[in-house]
């Protein structure tokens, strides 16, 4: 059952590479949140009520509802263009994401560690690499935020793969930090949109000496 969610996650990564519409990025992030919930839920051995509520909050509530909702507001506030031309053609992006997936599957096949759940490592690694690629590939800072969230999702899966459960309090603090970071970044993004009249990264060059 786990593998099904892993496959769906891999397909969302491919769609990230394929789609050019900003709206679709937000939608895909929301889908990823649900997929992550499925992954955690199907790998739970026994369900403890607090853990369950926490996981539900972290994946469904935060990753697939609050953050996409907020991103949509930011998108509307800035009146972002519907389509952003990435700097590398989509054709090559799709090929790159395929290669990344193959690489990370082969890599996790070669991990010999009985303690690690290498099944999660497959897409986790791909997700982190692809997140970086996504940030490099796109020129507008909204997509950079999306790339950061893809990396975060990858890290979430790495923590599943490593399988050490941190204390709930610490987990909560990590979650709070990330959410706050996204909110502040979103507010800054709105201001960038207002001040620079643009959200392209090549406009942000005032700092150079």
């Amino acid at each position: 059952m786990n593998f099904l969610f892993i496959i769906i996650y891999a397909i969302t990564l491919i769609y990230f590479a394929y789609s050019e519409r900003v709206k679709k990025f937000v939608w895909l992030l929301s889908v990823q949140g649900f997929v992550l919930f499925g992954m955690v839920f199907s790998s739970l051995k026994e369900i403890e009520i607090f853990d369950f509520i926490f996981i539900l909050t972290e994946t469904i509530l935060v990753k697939s509802i609050i953050v996409p909702w907020f991103l949509n507001r930011v998108r509307k506030h800035n009146g972002l263009k519907r389509i952003h031309e990435p700097s590398i053609p989509v054709f090559y992006s799709v090929i790159i994401v395929i290669l990344t997936l193959i690489l990370s599957f082969v890599l996790s096949n070669n991990i010999l560690n009985s303690q690690m759940h290498t099944q999660f490592f497959t897409v986790a690694f791909a997700s982190v690499i692809f997140g970086f690629y996504f940030i490099i590939n796109h020129k507008n800072i909204f997509s950079h935020l999306v790339g950061y969230l893809i990396i975060e999702n990858g890290i979430f899966m790495i923590s599943l793969a490593v399988g050490n459960t941190m204390p709930l309090l610490v987990n909560l603090a990590v979650l709070l930090d990330i959410v706050l970071g996204i909110l502040v970044l979103g507010v800054f993004l709105n201001r960038v949109g207002n001040t620079f009249q643009s959200d392209e990264i090549n406009q942000l060059t005032e700092l150079k000496d």
């Binding site: 593998f3 496959i7 891999a10 397909i11 491919i14 394929y18 053609p89 989509v90 054709f91 799709v94 090929i95 994401v97 395929i98 997936l101 193959i102 599957f105």
Partner: peptide, 18 residues
């Protein structure tokens, strides 16, 4: 068109990995 067609290969690769 090319990127749309290469998507088919991408999905085929995923099913290959599966």
């Amino acid at each position: 068109n090319p990127q749309w067609i290469i998507m088919l290969s991408a999905i085929a690769v995923v099913s290959f990995l599966t």
